[in-house]
């Protein structure tokens, strides 16, 4: 039974956590693409920046003597999200809006977002160096263990408090987004603009407002994703830079512009990565007496070093097989 527990810990829990991160990031990417029609490369760095904002706020809260049972980094998240939203709006106003106004092509905005990436990276490294930081210097990282001796396992199912919180945050964010997009006037206007921007304008929809709302949501989600990721692992300047590519893969696999597709794509890629590097021999071992062949020591689909490439391989396959994504994405 320990093998099963190992599988649950290594594949199901890790995959859910990774999928949550990817989904949160991919929603932002896909919303921005739906409304503004460009691939926002700086999204990963907006995540990192959100993580650092929360980190600074957490330091401040600790120095004020605020102690709670939940991680301080999580406690300050709402405030961090508000700050991140203002920065996101500022980035749009300072860098993207002038280009849009000039009627620049989406690809110009894509390149501009590389510029924004470099600026954010540079600033973060300027202030924080390239060291890595932990949210848990002043408080313990709680670990949950579910005893499984009932089914004959000696090892428990294990996950950490940040991982649990991350899944909760993702579920709440997805539900909130769903209700926003399907029930609220502004949310519907957002879908309308993603569907047909010209007609949205003709209908009298305040497109500038929709653009702002998009940045509000994307900025807030990026901050949440970055903070939750930093709580789970640790905070580094290149925290999300490496993760932005699987996030884009998730958004494309789900169909750019499709929020639900982004969520599905995020979990698909998250699970694919964890399953690809899982050593399946472990699951076969209990049956070693009945199997007609000897079980190899290592039965992982790809070696662990290639974990990140799994996302790209999936991406390439999807692009070849169905270029607009599994859920038909926007194509302009």
């Amino acid at each position: 039974m320990n093998e099963l527990i190992f599988f649950i810990n290594k594949v199901l829990i890790s995959g859910t956590v990774l999928g949550s991160i990817y989904a949160l990031g991919a929603i932002g990417v896909t919303l921005i693409f739906g409304i503004l029609r460009f691939a926002h490369f700086a999204h990963g760095d907006m995540m990192t920046m959100g993580g650092f904002i929360a980190f600074l706020l957490a330091l401040l809260a600790t120095s004020l003597g605020i102690v709670t049972p939940i991680p301080t980094g999580f406690l300050v998240l709402p405030l961090a999200m508000v700050i991140a939203v203002f920065i996101a709006l500022g980035i749009d106003k300072g860098f993207y809006a002038p280009l849009r106004k000039r009627g620049a092509r989406p690809v110009t905005l894509l390149i501009a977002s590389i510029g924004v990436t470099l600026i954010i990276q540079g600033l973060i490294r300027l202030f924080f160096g390239s060291a890595s930081y932990s949210f848990f210097d002043n408080e313990p990282k709680e670990i949950f263990q579910i005893d499984m001796s009932a089914i004959g396992a000696t090892r428990p199912i294990t996950f950490t408090e940040p991982q649990l919180l991350m899944v909760i945050v993702t579920v709440v964010a997805v539900l909130a987004l769903h209700f926003f997009l399907t029930r609220s006037r502004l949310g519907k206007a957002m879908r309308a603009m993603a569907d047909n921007a010209d007609l949205a304008q003709v209908s009298g929809i305040n497109t500038a407002l929709v653009v702002r709302v998009t940045w509000v949501i994307a900025g807030a989600l990026a901050c949440a994703a970055g903070t939750m990721l930093a709580l789970d692992v640790s905070l580094k300047p290149d925290l999300a830079f490496n993760i932005v590519l699987p996030i884009f893969a998730a958004a494309i696999v789900g169909g750019l512009g499709q929020s639900y597709g982004a969520i599905a794509g995020g979990f698909l890629i998250g699970f694919a990565e964890t399953m690809a590097v899982f050593n399946w021999a472990i699951l076969l071992r209990p049956f070693k007496d009945v199997l007609p062949f000897e079980i190899p020591a290592d039965l992982a689909i790809v070696p662990t070093e290639y974990k990140l490439t799994v996302a790209f391989v999936i991406l390439v396959i999807v692009l070849l097989w169905r270029p607009t994504g599994i859920f038909k994405g926007a194509s302009s």
Partner: peptide, 11 residues
């Protein structure tokens, strides 16, 4: 009412 693409097809 524009000549073409005058509905939100996904809604």
């Amino acid at each position: 009412v524009p000549q073409e693409k005058n509905v939100f097809t996904s809604m």
